[in-house]
């Protein structure tokens, strides 16, 4: 059979930043920002739990909630996110727990990481690989991703609380945060 030359039909972005970005370091005095959405109840519960722990460690916490990403509201969201990122020292972006919400969790995390802020995206287990895939496609393959069990949103508040407790230390490890002796004692 004769051989022919054929042309590649694919196109991919060529640039990549494989760096995870800076470590979060000590938490005391830092401003921790939680990126929330409006679909995952479990993420609201977990972020509330973790926020208390950050505040106990001497950090302050703020929230930014993702809503519509198209139309004028989407335009406003983009501006709002950009402004919020200027007010925080650490970003915890979630929740990657479906297709499009993984997409926007990662896209917003990349925006945070690219602005130089220590950033970690939070994904549930079944969307972990997808989160890394989208991070790489977004030009930030080294993005830090902390993984929670799946399914999660299907659980009750009483069942979600232990998950928040069990996965906080892992979050600190992924984000490169360290607690002072006093914080640890607290």
């Amino acid at each position: 059979m004769a051989s022919i030359k054929i042309l590649d039909p694919t196109a991919k972005r060529m640039d990549d930043n494989a760096s995870p970005g800076p470590d979060a370091g000590e938490l005391a005095g830092k401003r921790v920002g939680f990126r929330l959405d409006q679909i995952w109840r479990c993420w609201d519960l977990i972020s509330e739990n973790w926020a208390q722990k950050f505040e106990t460690a001497g950090a302050t916490v703020t929230y930014w909630r993702s809503t519509n990403r198209s139309g004028e509201e989407g335009e406003d969201q983009a501006r709002s996110l950009e402004a919020w990122l200027k007010t925080v020292d650490i970003v915890v972006s979630g929740l990657a727990n479906c297709g499009s919400c993984t997409g926007w969790t990662i896209r917003d995390a990349i925006a945070a990481a690219n602005s130089g802020v220590p950033t970690v995206a939070v994904a549930t287990k079944n969307f972990e690989e997808f989160a890394h895939e989208l991070a790489a496609r977004g030009g930030r393959s080294g993005l830090r991703v902390h993984v929670l069990p799946y399914p999660l949103n299907e659980l009750s508040r009483e069942e979600v609380e232990p998950v928040a407790e069990a996965y906080f230390d892992g979050l600190l490890g992924v984000m490169g945060a360290s607690l002072t002796a006093r914080e640890q004692a607290a």
Binding site: M1, A2, S3, I4, K5, I6, L7, D8, T10
Partner: peptide, 25 residues
Amino acid sequence: WLTSRRFDAEDDIEAFTTFSLEQGW
């Protein structure tokens, strides 16, 4: 002025279809 990468493939639709699946195209 075509800048896409060239691949060697067999001049046969069935073989090319298989090749394209292997490449993820």
